[in-house]
């Protein structure tokens, strides 16, 4: 579903992403791990067509992002880091706007989609509140709802559980797990327990390069008996 080959991005003299390649199939949840500044967000931004790679290709559903970005964006649900949204809009207005841009033009179709994601992300209680008045956890869920509204085959989530309390984290993880069967999901995180909880595969990147690409079990097997964060530290040091 998602295929990345030889992706490179350089900012000034710093190579943020250095020749990254990987593949994600439907039904997989890929955990994208790495220290801050390792190039996680940059890679995701290139996948979504928000920034242009200097070299390499990223295809989603067989379509190259640089060739037909609009077609790629149609198949993609994206939750950017810190879940930006228009603060002066209410949750409902905002989701209606996204639904409309996503091609649900009739009032009935829009309503159906918005109600569906409001229920899915438990936002019904704040639906007519403006987004600027929401707490971090709710904002994050609005961003999540926005990414799911068109039921996309590919989902890219940049730190989806960031800023949530343990209960909310659990809820979001269950949500991701439940719909992962027919989707290809990439989620970035620096919470290692998340990997064990939901990911079917892990990629660890450090200084713009892939240093590990395997199942969580294989990652553990690298240093039997060691904790995940110790393995992480050895790999990214």
């Amino acid at each position: 579903m998602i295929e990345v080959t030889g992706l490179v991005k350089t900012y000034g003299t710093k190579r943020a992403v250095d020749d990254i390649s990987f593949k994600v199939n439907r039904g997989e949840i890929l955990g994208f791990l790495g220290p801050n500044g390792a190039g996680k967000s940059t890679t995701m931004k290139m996948l979504t067509g928000f920034i242009r790679p200097d070299a390499g290709t990223a295809t989603i559903g067989g379509i190259d992002v640089t060739v037909d970005p609009v077609a790629v964006k149609r198949q993609l649900g994206y939750l950017p880091e810190s879940a930006p949204a228009y603060p002066e809009m209410t949750v409902e207005e905002f989701l209606c706007f996204i639904a409309e841009v996503r091609g649900f033009r009739t009032a009935a179709a829009k309503r159906e989609r918005v109600e569906h994601v409001l229920g899915l992300t438990h936002l019904n209680s704040v639906r007519s509140q403006t987004i600027e008045t929401l707490s971090k956890g709710y904002k994050q869920r609005v961003g999540f709802a926005q990414a799911l509204i068109h039921n996309p085959p590919a989902l890219i989530l940049d730190e989806p559980t960031d800023g949530l309390d343990p209960n909310q984290k659990n809820e979001v993880r269950t949500l991701i797990k439940n719909m992962a069967a027919e989707k290809a999901v990439i989620l970035s995180t620096h919470i290692l327990e998340e990997v064990d909880a939901i990911c079917t595969r892990v990629i660890i990147i450090a200084r713009g390069r892939v240093v590990a690409d395997e199942t969580p079990a294989a990652l553990r097997a690298r240093q039997p008996g060691a904790r995940l964060d110790e393995i992480f530290r050895t790999l990214t040091a």
Binding site: G49, K73, Y78, P84, A85, V101
Partner: peptide
């Protein structure tokens, strides 16, 4: 400033 430009340009629009 609000970062919504990232949201806007990852929607299917030119």
């Amino acid at each position: 400033r609000a970062g919504t430009i990232e949201l806007l340009f990852t929607l299917p629009i030119t």
